[in-house]
Design a binder for these strands. Structure first.
Lengths: 210, 210
DNA sequence: TTGGTAACGCACTAGTTAGTTACTTTGCAT
DNA sequence: ATGCAAAGTAACTAACTAGTGCGTTACCAA
């Protein structure tokens, strides 16, 4: 197995370790709060390698954020919602989005950090735009089928629906710390999580119902 | 007018200028990104005064965040939604929340920053909890009246509804930079803003409808 | 008027941080 | 085997940053 043999020098493996460590650190502390030295240590390499492969902290961040978006868009496409009845398709998307945010907590924090910086790293990514267009198309198709079958009302903007599906999960999770204090309940308790998911499914289905 | 006479030394005025400058800087760059020197400059004072009045950057941030929460909770109470018919009351709350986020963009960024730091500054604020309880009660009362009048369905958790009302506006605005790129439309265009608000009102009313 | 206290400000420190320089080591093509 | 480009490392720097020491100035009570 010459491909998987452990090597003392392996550019690809080092790059991957740096990206993984960077994702965690940027998610934990944001672009401004993350420390390049800390990323190097977590990646079991040193700072020089980061500058060798990525040139700057900013470009490392840009790479991490772009990959994070491509990952979620890929996972969404793999759902193959086109084969499900409209209501089930939407419910599946709501459940998937929720679970994805829970399983990949870095995604939310990375997006927050990118928006704090006015999306300047993502601004020129053609890849992300293309992938997002596919998502909107997918939801648009579901809506169209739902209308044809008489289960959904007409005239719903798929972009608005996408935003809402993301919002009702994302907001709950990104603000879980202040939320738990303001509303005096543990937002991450399994029962609370399940209740929120059910509430969200209900919200979306009532929104599209004929 | 001895009260309003300009004084070269005015502790209250200086404190107020520091808080105002801090709110803007923390909102712009987060707790980590904001610079104490910059806050001092914006407040037309010097760093020493900030440490004199607030002791530390962290405590200054805590003061700013706490005040931001109290401000929005106060404004919500002033809506006096108890006097409106249930549907109008909810629509008014959705419109208010949306407008408040638009008029006070610092609020969203401050909350994001506080959550990045796991709400550790807000953790012990009794005042914020009390104010939030009033909001939940207010929405709870609206729901109760709606059910009694037969226009709302029973069994809706006022906390979940509150979260959703905040979420559908907050998410759109906090992620307006990446959103504008991903979805290839200007999220801050007046027409886009109006469309989103109408969509959100619809979402909430359909959610509670009997 | 004056003495004391609170408000104010300059200039510094001690510690960090992104990025770099100058160097050694590895492994592969020949 | 061996030469050399790529992979890797430690120690450095220049700039920056939160926080402070210490002296000055305005205001008010007496």
């Amino acid at each position: 197995m010459p491909e998987t043999k452990k090597r003392k020098r392996d550019a690809d493996a080092t790059k991957a370790r740096i990206l993984d460590a960077a994702k965690k650190e940027f998610a934990r502390l944001g672009l401004g709060g993350a420390r390049v030295d800390e990323i190097a240590e977590r990646a079991k390499t040193n700072k020089r390698m980061i500058y060798h492969y990525f040139g700057s902290k900013e470009f490392l961040f840009q790479t991490v954020v772009e990959q994070a978006y491509l990952d979620i868009r890929t996972a969404e496409q793999e759902l193959a919602l086109g084969h499900l009845p409209p209501r089930e398709a939407l419910e599946t998307l709501v459940r998937f989005t929720w679970k994805y945010y829970l399983d990949n907590p870095e995604f939310i924090t990375l997006v927050n950090s990118e928006n704090l910086h006015q999306a300047r790293h993502v601004k020129n990514s053609q890849k992300i735009q293309t992938a997002s267009r596919q998502l909107v198309d997918m939801v648009g198709e579901i809506l169209k089928r739902g209308v044809a079958e008489g289960v959904f009302r007409a005239g719903i903007d798929p972009v608005q629906l996408n935003i809402t599906i993301a919002a009702i999960g994302y907001y709950y999770l990104t603000n879980r710390f202040t939320g738990s204090i303001l509303f005096e309940r543990d937002f991450m308790d399994p029962k609370s999580l399940e209740q929120r998911l059910e509430f969200n499914i209900n919200t979306v289905l009532r929104l599209v119902e004929a």
